[in-house]
Each structure stands twice: as C-alpha cells, then as structure tokens.
Design a protein around this nucleic acid. Sequence first.
DNA 1: AACTAAACGGACCGATCGGTCAGGTTGAGC
DNA 2: GCTCAACCTGACCGATCGGTCCGTTTAGTT
Lengths: 197, 197
Amino acid sequence: MANVRADAVRNRRLLLDAAAAEFAEHGTEVSIARIAARAGIGKGTVFRHFATKEQLMAAIFSDQLESLVARGEALREGADSGAALLEFMAAGVELRSFCQAFTPAMREDPQIRAASDRLVAVARSLTDRACRDGFVRDDVTGHDVVLLINAACQAVAPLGDAVPGLWRRYLSMIFDGLRPEAAHPLPVPAPDSLTPG
Amino acid sequence: MANVRADAVRNRRLLLDAAAAEFAEHGTEVSIARIAARAGIGKGTVFRHFATKEQLMAAIFSDQLESLVARGEALREGADSGAALLEFMAAGVELRSFCQAFTPAMREDPQIRAASDRLVAVARSLTDRACRDGFVRDDVTGHDVVLLINAACQAVAPLGDAVPGLWRRYLSMIFDGLRPEAAHPLPVPAPDSLTPG
DNA sequence: AACTAAACGGACCGATCGGTCAGGTTGAGC
DNA sequence: GCTCAACCTGACCGATCGGTCCGTTTAGTT
C-alpha cells in the first residue's frame, strides 16, 4: 500500500471502469487497445496491472458477482421471501456481465470459482426460505436459480437492446415456472456444481 | 444443374456437413481453415461455394431453422396440443445452432429473416392451439416461445456438455411457467418482431 | 485421346489481436 | 530540488483470421 504510487491506483480505477463499461456494451471480445483508449491510458499500462486479458476479465466479473452476493445476503432479511428471490434474480439479470462470467474459460479462474460458489450458496439460502413459505416448488435448488438467471439474461440477447425492459417479461415467466401451482415432475435431477466434474 | 460438376456438389455436401458439425461442437468462431480440413477440401474451395463466412453460416442455420419449422408443422396435427408445443420447444433446444442463428449480425441475412419469420408463425400456431385447449396461459405469443427456446438453450451453456440431458430440466421448468395455473400478470408486453425496429 | 471450362488447392495478403520491451516520465522520500 | 524506483507509453512482435489469386487438376464432351 505504501509502496504504490498515486497515479497507479488512479489509472487502475480508470482501467477497471472503462473495461467494465466496454464489456457491458460490446462483450468480452472488445480489444485491449479499445479499453485502454476509453480509459485514457496506454495499452502497455493495461498489462502492467493485469498480466493477461483473462485476468482483467476475472477481476471485473468476480467483483460484480460478489456485489450480487452482497445483494442476495441483504435480501435474506426482508419480509416477503418470494419477492426477495425474484428481486435477487432481477438483480442478477440486470448486471449483464453475468452470462459472460460463466464461460468455460472463465471458470478456471480461482476468483470466479470462489465468487460463483458463494453465489450459489446465497441463491440456495433465498430459495429454501421462499420454499418454506410456499412461494416456490420444493424441487428447485440454488444451482437451478443461478442457471435460470443466466437463461433469462440470454432470452432477450437476440434482440440486443432494442426493447430495454423486455427481460422482465421473461424473468417473470420463468419465475412463474418456479411456483408450486404449476409444478410438474422434473425429468432430470439438479446438477451438483457449476463446474464440470 | 446440368452445368454443375459432380465433384462440386460432393464437395459442397462435405463442406456443409463439416461446417455444421464444427459450429455445433465449437461455435461459430471456428476458423474456415479448420472447417475445410475437416471436410477434406482446400480452404479456397470453401470460398468458391460461399463468398463469405457469414453466407456459409446463413446457409447452414437457415436450413436448420427450416427443419424446425417443418417439425413444428408436423406437430400441429397431433392429438395433445400441450405435448406438441413442449416437443416443438425440445426440438428447438436440441439443435443448438438455434442460439447462434440469432445473433444481431446473422439477422441481416434475408434467408435467416425468412426462416425465423416462418418459425415464429408456426410457434404462434402451436401456442394458440395449446392455449385454446387450456394447456398454456393466454398472454404468451409465438415470439415468446421462440425466445424461451433460446433461453432454455443458453441456460446450460455454462456447463458445456458436462451433463448431457440437463437442458430438459430447465425446459421443463420454463414450460411450467407457461401453464395457466401459475400465471401472474406480465410486467411488459410481448415484442412485435425479432428484429429491432 | 484430346480439349476445355469448371473446380480445386494452398501460398499469399492485409488487418487485427494479445502481449512485450526499451526508453521517456513522474511521484515520493530526503 | 535531487534522486531513483516505480510507472507509463506506443512502437513492435508473432500468431491468427477472413479473403484473394493463380497455377494445377479434373470432369465431361466430342
């Protein structure tokens, strides 16, 4: 801390903000050069802070996953457990980086693994509570909820940002599928983890 | 027809098969060189048959969408309209190219546009029938069904092919969300079309 | 068998990307 | 204000991609 210069921390902040914005707007395939230009720093500076592009992505996405974990933990104490679970899922869809954080390549990173483990844990916690209160069918797990957030996220991907709030429609439909009233037996058991093997 | 050589049609067949297989296994970002190698032909031959990579993708994906349209039309005559809609959606998820055909870039292609229009039409037909028979809520449209097929397709994308039949679990959950028993009012109206504007 | 137009193949081109490095710049302790 | 390590920069490198081009091969006709 004492050994780090002031301009270094400032540039790091600029870099993280610019990269997060570019990833959100144009996906992870944007070039490092473009991110550096947006941040107003040189391309070499990017690689001074993060050795590879993957490490940069991991830093940003694990941060955003952790913020969602915090949101979920806060929602555990609300009164309406059903609305809390729905709000948690909505928050997950809203940070669109969600889906990008879950590519096979990204899951190698230990920060991403840790964050998604904690995400599944808080999702299970919210789900169990909503289940006890009768808002959610009893055969749905934390992994299910995380994957369904991803599904809702991708449902509207074909349309781009043409209809801004449309994802709420499909999240609402998917959430209706979690209610006990319409539950039909599921043909396949829930997965054990989000990582293959 | 008479003016086309036998080896040309054979190579075209090899190329289409190889490209479809590579796209299904590794996504649309596979290189033309790799596809050509798999087909056992030269890279230049690929561009003799399709001027650009996008045209090759459009040919393959519009073919697969058309096959799904045909499947849907056949399913319009079954006895159980609810099971028919579910089977249609399952067929859509099974050809994973589905999601790849719906990128913003791909929708420029007239073949893709035509095929997806027909796909929405047959989806609406199946949905209306299932709705009349009481299997499906009355506020769901053909566009919804197509987008939800896409959602189910992507739900398990994070896991790769680790759990082969897992998508059936999430398609089942999503389909439960279409049933009238659990229907809650939707916060956003259905989109008019799959193309922005 | 000879001919020709169509088809083939792979070296080649320009663009782009992630990542490196040598040399100039700057913030912080004295 | 002096010094030096930390930092920043953009030219540069090798790899890869989509797409082109031209010399060679081959299918089909007479």
